[in-house]
């Protein structure tokens, strides 16, 4: 640490107060989540008017076992995983292929095609969801995995990020590979993609979290309970309970634990990803 930084730090008479405020606000932010996790391990039917009782024993994992055996929650978790993983993989493949062509290949109307892809940034999915429903219906994909996944994979922001990443691959590397008779596909697969791992990871994480939490489209396009994803299934499940918290909170905890774990594992990439895309989703 430089001297000047030390000097600045020492000069702030309110530093202690600010740190205390930071601790207080942090706790306020995570209390609901901690509360959810504690409620989920209380005995079923537990009720109290003393807020602190939620955080005291007795604890049990019976609710988790109950929900896993006697509800659709596990099926919905599985659906969310299948949809999330397939959406992420397909998004990464098609956006990286398109970005590779725009970054590394020569063809006519390239600028026009790139601008055409960029237009997608200005098209809000929420405002085109009614016609989208009709299109997916005409393709017989309402109430299917395909109908959930395919409309979500064409991500213009993914193409933009990957293109700028591919642009940074050294020209000499690409040219020498071409001279050695390397095909475009080999160049894409063997050279350019491995160099873009950080960008692929960031886009992959965002796509997965976005899919895991997506509400509006699955809410419209899925009718069968067996195909529900968690965000659609949870309200159905939760609405059946108005006063008893324990089982619905267990369901919410089951829905949240995978993303909380993913967040704690990938926090650095997520934070970096946000500051380098600067755009939601």
């Amino acid at each position: 640490m430089s001297n000047s930084k030390l000097l600045l730090r020492n000069r702030d008479p309110y530093r202690g107060l600010k740190v205390a405020i930071g601790v207080l606000v942090s706790i306020l932010f995570i209390v609901p989540i901690i509360w959810m996790l504690f409620v989920s391990i209380k005995p079923n039917g537990f009720a109290t008017s003393n807020p602190l009782d939620w955080f005291a024993p007795p604890f049990t994992i019976a609710n988790y076992i109950d929900l896993i055996w006697n509800s659709m929650i596990l099926q919905w978790v599985l659906n969310s995983f299948i949809v999330g993983i397939l959406t992420t993989v397909i998004t990464l493949i098609i956006t990286s292929l398109a970005a590779f062509a725009i970054s590394q290949m020569k063809f006519r109307f390239k600028r026009f095609i790139f601008i055409f892809f960029l237009l997608g940034l200005m098209i809000p999915g929420e405002a085109t969801i009614i016609p989208l429903y009709e299109i997916v219906k005409a393709m017989n994909m309402i109430d299917t995995y395909e109908g959930l996944i395919l409309p979500m994979v064409a991500s213009p922001i993914g193409v933009i990020i990957l293109k700028s990443f591919f642009d940074g691959v050294p020209k000499e590397v690409v040219e020498s590979a071409r001279i050695d008779g390397c095909s475009y596909f080999k160049l894409y697969y063997k050279i350019v993609l491995p160099l873009a791992k950080p960008a692929l990871a960031a886009i992959g994480i965002f796509t997965f979290i976005g899919s895991w939490n997506n509400f509006l489209w699955p809410y419209l396009s899925i009718l069968s309970e067996t195909l529900y994803t968690l965000p659609v299934g949870l309200p159905v499940f939760n609405s059946a309970y108005s006063q008893a918290y324990v089982l619905p909170m267990t369901a919410n905890a089951i829905a949240s634990l995978p993303v909380i774990v993913a967040f704690l594992l990938f926090e650095k990439q997520i934070v970096k990803g946000i500051s380098f895309t600067g755009i939601k989703g």
Binding site: F215, A255, S256
Partner: peptide, 9 residues
Amino acid sequence: LPSILSVSV
């Protein structure tokens, strides 16, 4: 942390 939770949760 709250940002990663589902809207339903």
